[in-house]
């Protein structure tokens, strides 16, 4: 999605109030090196031109199949990778141009909850020191105040505050994810990227963690970017949903509208893959089954990235990349065949 012009960037409403986060044509390309001298042989276009706005206290869901660039986009927003191109504005500060030290000073305000609760905690640090580390780095809390804050955080995520001296491996997956959440909350962030926070948990725990995240959002006024491939969960938790395919956002809109009146053929196919709870209706349900694999992000198809698997693709789809079209307030779709 290229910028149409500076005033109306793709997929964001011009008349909206001040966004907390604004992405403008963000690209994240990784070089592929090959051969004896490790010359650059190509580019993995993991994120290839993404724009959207995120309002304060909003919860934007980001869905898409494996390898479409959801996680990379999340990490790029937080500058865990330097974006190749584009601008990321957080509270009107352009993160891409910040020096590493200035960026570090901003980190308390934007945090991430990681997908894997097992590996994302340092196995040799106690839970207390994992949670306290950001406090040491960014706050002046010391001694008793510091340990009180750690206990308060553990309590906030529903863990026993006496667990501070235990190590991560002594906890279950759901408890570890709570530790990850407590760590992210430590410095009162405004914006949290939840990178598939429930994917590694079993279903009974998923509900607990999602409810915890919702409660915390309400209590602390957080803004979430909720990355998931669980469409049902996104429908439950997010008011607005972005659908990503091969590094690009193909459809973005209010959750109720997107789930009931999706326009992009990829979104339709994705939604048709969600099973229904009623077995009788499930048996009769018509599914849109996509053929073929996701094209390699190193060598994406010309024009529309989805055209190779699209059931309704035409010749013009191969010729040009569809520009995002506004269908109704806040509902954007990038497809030539949608009017």
């Amino acid at each position: 999605m290229q910028l149409a012009n500076e005033k109306t960037p793709g997929m964001s409403d011009a008349n909206s109030s001040k966004p907390l986060l604004r992405l403008k044509n963000v690209k994240q390309h990784f070089p592929i090196t090959a051969g004896l001298l490790r010359r650059q042989a190509g580019m993995i276009k993991a994120v290839d031109g993404v724009d959207f706005d995120l309002m304060p206290q909003e919860n934007l869901g980001l869905v898409g199949e494996s390898g479409c660039g959801k996680t990379t986009l999340g990490r790029t927003i937080l500058h865990l990778y330097r974006p190749t191109e584009g601008q990321i504005l957080f509270k009107d500060v352009n993160l891409t141009q910040l020096k590493p030290s200035a960026l570090r000073a901003l980190r308390p305000k934007m945090q991430m909850i990681f997908q894997d609760p097992q590996d994302s905690l340092n196995p040799r640090m106690t839970v207390g020191s994992i949670i306290a580390e950001p406090l040491d780095e960014h706050s002046t809390l010391k001694g008793k105040d510091r340990s009180n804050r750690v206990e308060e955080l553990l309590d906030a995520v529903g863990l026993n505050p006496r667990y501070t001296n235990r190590y991560p491996h002594e906890f279950s997956g759901g408890q570890r994810q709570r530790i990850g959440i407590a760590r992210a909350l430590g410095l009162n962030p405004e914006f949290i990227i939840c990178d598939e926070p429930i994917a590694a948990l079993d279903v009974s725990i998923q509900a607990q963690v999602v409810n915890l995240l919702e409660d915390l959002q309400e209590k602390l006024g957080l803004t979430y970017l909720f990355i998931s491939h669980d469409l049902g969960m996104i429908r439950h938790i997010s008011k607005r949903v972005a659908v990503m395919y091969l590094g690009k956002i193909v459809e973005l809109g209010p959750a109720h509208e997107l789930y009931s009146r999706s326009r992009h053929p990829y979104t339709k196919a994705l939604l048709s893959a969600v099973p229904l709870h009623n077995p009788g209706r499930e048996a009769k349900r018509e599914r849109i089954i996509l053929t073929g694999d996701v094209p390699s992000p190193a060598n994406p198809p010309s024009g529309c990235p989805f055209r190779t698997r699209c059931p309704i693709a035409e010749t013009r789809c191969a010729n040009s990349m569809p520009q995002p079209k506004k269908l109704s307030l806040g509902h954007w779709v990038a497809c030539h065949l949608v009017d």
Partner: peptide
């Protein structure tokens, strides 16, 4: 990565 996102 967690440590980096903590801002260390």
């Amino acid at each position: 990565r967690t440590a980096r996102s903590k801002g260390r």
